[in-house]
Simulated assay, not measured.
Amino acid sequence: MKKNLLKGAAASVIVLTTLAFTTMKKEINIKESNVTWTGKKVTGSHTGTIQLKSGFFNMEDEKLIGGEFVMDMSSISNTDLSGESKQKLEGHLKSEDFFGVEKHPTAKLVITNIASKGNGSYGVVGNLTIKNITKPVTFDLEINDNSASAKLSIDRSKYDVKYGSGSFFDDLGDKTIYDNFDLDVNLKF
């Protein structure tokens, strides 16, 4: 009798412990989410969008513990130009000079470490893969209800995106394109 009672108590503790730490996968609504990029050069800047292919957050007791996001690099579009200029820039961004989307159709971010800053704010470390090159990135992420936002600055030269980079080529003058590009990420889930 005592043995059965102890087994029952142990089972109850295991069940309660499991319920106390509920892990949930929150899928990103890719149709309602958006990623806006901005690239700068000596003579100005360009802006556009990249579509998410998939993404999710892992949550435990309503706190962020992980996540993974895949971007469709073939969806890179420009929003500040029109006509032939727009088409030329988009084609160039998709070419081997930049992101080589024919060989590398996706980019991926995997969250590897998270520090809560309180009130839905997190310091995030992740591995970003572009052109099959993976490097760590850090950024702040804000989560409110069923949305999240982050701003990232990415050094393209670390991912073999060299075109127009003063880090690789001398005497570019006003044709220099800065190595860092910015991503403004707004997610719905």
Rank of each mutant, 00 (worst) to 15 (best):
residue 31 K to W: 00
residue 92 H to N: 06
residue 23 T to C: 02
residue 44 G to W: 09
residue 147 S to V: 12
residue 129 T to K: 08
residue 81 L to F: 04
residue 47 T to G: 07
residue 114 I to K: 01
residue 161 V to A: 07
residue 44 G to S: 07
residue 181 F to E: 03
residue 91 G to F: 10
residue 2 K to R: 11
residue 185 V to D: 05
residue 52 L to G: 09
residue 186 N to E: 15
residue 49 T to C: 01
residue 2 K to V: 12
residue 126 G to P: 02
residue 153 S to C: 03
residue 101 V to E: 08
residue 118 G to D: 01
residue 144 N to R: 15
residue 64 L to E: 08
residue 31 K to V: 12
residue 161 V to E: 04
residue 149 S to M: 11
residue 50 I to S: 05
residue 107 A to I: 03
residue 106 T to A: 10
residue 184 D to G: 03
residue 165 S to Q: 02
residue 112 T to N: 02
residue 50 I to C: 09
residue 50 I to L: 12
residue 39 G to W: 06
residue 103 K to Y: 10
residue 154 I to E: 02
residue 39 G to P: 04
residue 86 K to V: 06
residue 43 T to N: 09
residue 52 L to W: 05
residue 149 S to F: 03
residue 19 L to M: 12
residue 45 S to M: 09
residue 3 K to E: 15
residue 127 N to S: 10
residue 51 Q to R: 01
residue 14 I to L: 12
residue 104 H to K: 01
residue 23 T to E: 00
residue 120 G to H: 12
residue 27 E to D: 12
residue 106 T to V: 14
residue 52 L to K: 00
residue 42 V to P: 05
residue 104 H to D: 14
residue 132 N to T: 10
residue 45 S to Y: 14
residue 86 K to A: 12
residue 64 L to S: 11
residue 181 F to S: 07
residue 99 F to W: 02
residue 155 D to H: 08
residue 189 F to A: 11
residue 60 E to A: 14
residue 8 G to C: 08
residue 83 G to L: 08
residue 39 G to L: 06
residue 53 K to Y: 09
residue 153 S to H: 05
residue 67 G to F: 01
residue 17 T to F: 14
residue 41 K to I: 00
residue 6 L to T: 10
residue 77 S to Q: 13
residue 161 V to S: 04
residue 183 L to K: 06
